[in-house]
């Protein structure tokens, strides 16, 4: 019995080891081939054609001079991104961002609904008027406080971030109201969002929230220590 159990345990560990150290290579190959085949699709071709990498501004939270960058791919409407913002994200801001050691580069990865795209455009509109960090926090807080923290997950399927709503949320920060409103409705900023999406594809992002720290990718919800470990390595 003992031998059999030992054998079972060893087999389980071998399977897990195989999944960790070999399967990920296979996954990489598969994801590469998936990306290559997807590139043939018209939609992706449009995104590639439209994407503007050269003029795309970096949406920074924290000190621009911070030595380490944490890249965050997110959708303002995604529940996990909201959960991250109000949990681990808040801890990271206290420990690393506010002290100027780390900066977050936010990249839009909108996919849930049309208002995801609108909110993503808004991030670049807010950048133009110099209040992106406030925009980032206020939009997340609005969605979290009014919907997800109350368990209203069905809000995901409703158009909750209308132009009027977004304008109301950040009214105190807007310098030029008419320009900001027009910017939200105009699709000009989509070229930057397309660039964000393609950068995400290059970074191997498959879902939100997705993060990259010093070339290491973190997919999905992760605990504070995962970020702390990677950030501390980069800060050495």
């Amino acid at each position: 019995m003992n031998k059999l159990l030992t054998l079972t345990a060893v087999c389980l560990l071998i399977v897990f080891g195989w999944l960790v150290f070999i399967r990920s290579d296979v996954n990489d190959e598969n994801s590469k081939s998936d990306i290559e085949s997807n590139q043939l699709e018209d939609e992706t071709a449009d995104i590639e054609q439209n994407a503007d990498f050269e003029n795309r501004p970096a949406l920074i939270i924290g000190s621009a001079d911070a030595p380490v960058t944490l890249v965050e791919y997110a959708d303002f409407k995604c529940p996990s991104c909201n959960q991250f913002h109000h949990g681990v994200g808040a801890q990271l801001r206290d420990e690393y961002i506010d002290s100027g050691r780390v900066r977050i580069e936010f990249r839009n990865y909108p996919f849930i609904g049309p208002d995801s795209g609108r909110a993503a455009r808004g991030s670049y509109c807010a950048y133009d008027q110099g209040f992106f960090p406030a925009y980032h926090d206020k939009i997340y807080n609005y969605v979290w406080d009014n919907y997800y923290s109350k368990g209203d997950m069905a809000a995901e399927f409703r158009d909750i971030l209308t132009v009027d709503t977004i304008v109301q949320i950040v009214a105190d920060d807007i310098r030029d109201m008419s320009t900001f409103s027009a910017c939200l409705e105009d699709t000009t900023k989509n070229k930057f969002i397309d660039a964000d999406l393609l950068l995400g594809a290059d970074d191997g992002v498959t879902g939100t929230p997705g993060f990259v720290i010093g070339g290491q990718k973190i997919t999905g919800p992760s605990n504070y220590n995962t970020f702390k470990t990677l950030l501390d390595i980069q800060l050495r």
Partner: peptide, 19 residues
């Protein structure tokens, strides 16, 4: 051990490169 392996797989399957 079985529970540990199973939960590890669930928790880390999306981040195998990180592991």
């Amino acid at each position: 051990i079985g529970a540990f392996v199973s939960s590890s797989f669930i928790l880390w399957s999306l981040n195998l490169d990180l592991v």
